[in-house]
Design a protein around this nucleic acid. Sequence first.
DNA 1: AATCTTTATCGTAATATTGCAATCTCAATA
DNA 2: TATTGAGATTGCAATATTACGATAAAGATT
Lengths: 110, 110
Amino acid sequence: MGATKTEHFTDKQNEIATLSKAFGHPARVAIIDYLLKVDACICGDIVNELPLAQPTVSQHLKELKNAGLIKGDIEGNTICYCIDEKALDKLQSYFANISTKLEMKKKDCC
Amino acid sequence: MGATKTEHFTDKQNEIATLSKAFGHPARVAIIDYLLKVDACICGDIVNELPLAQPTVSQHLKELKNAGLIKGDIEGNTICYCIDEKALDKLQSYFANISTKLEMKKKDCC
DNA sequence: AATCTTTATCGTAATATTGCAATCTCAATA
DNA sequence: TATTGAGATTGCAATATTACGATAAAGATT
């Protein structure tokens, strides 16, 4: 095998997994960090910021896009990539929810 | 190739990537969900909760453990698995921080 | 129009992940 | 001590990911 059995899990679980997976590579974390750092959305120099070849960066951007984490529009010969707030809010609220639940538990078992 | 070039990224980026990657599979999301749902930490029936064979579940648990998301202690012939709050707090604060930054931006470019 | 610049895609090699049957470990119990 | 039961490990097959050279696509510039 090697293929994830997504059909056995809930939509929510698959959604969180997909979004988390997109963050599951340091290059993609670095891309998101960079998109946050630069004030403008036009970031044609994103390739220069990363220690990876251009096709590799392009591929990582594609994966972030597929996961719904970034949006991109063509603007002349530069691309405007932005973080999609909606996707990030899902992750943020998911982890915030877990933290809240953990706070309520406080079982000192482990 | 095929191996992630972790050495080119910051410790923080690699840490977030590792933790996120652990959430990057619906089975592991389901495991965390289950650990939150059950009140006790002893959860020997975790295999029955998932639509996967026992070795596969064991492997996913191992990955969660390697990522530092869960702690486990042997207790007789059942295992006590718990979510590691520290690891989850890192994820939670990382995503909360991103959300805050996005809120401040509000550039309506895309 | 020819060229430059920037990003995408294709093809491919190396490595990682997913999943499970078979097997092992080890404590509890008969 | 033999057996049972719960979880870990091993080994392997199928698939996915990562990375990059070569090349393509398309607007910008000369």
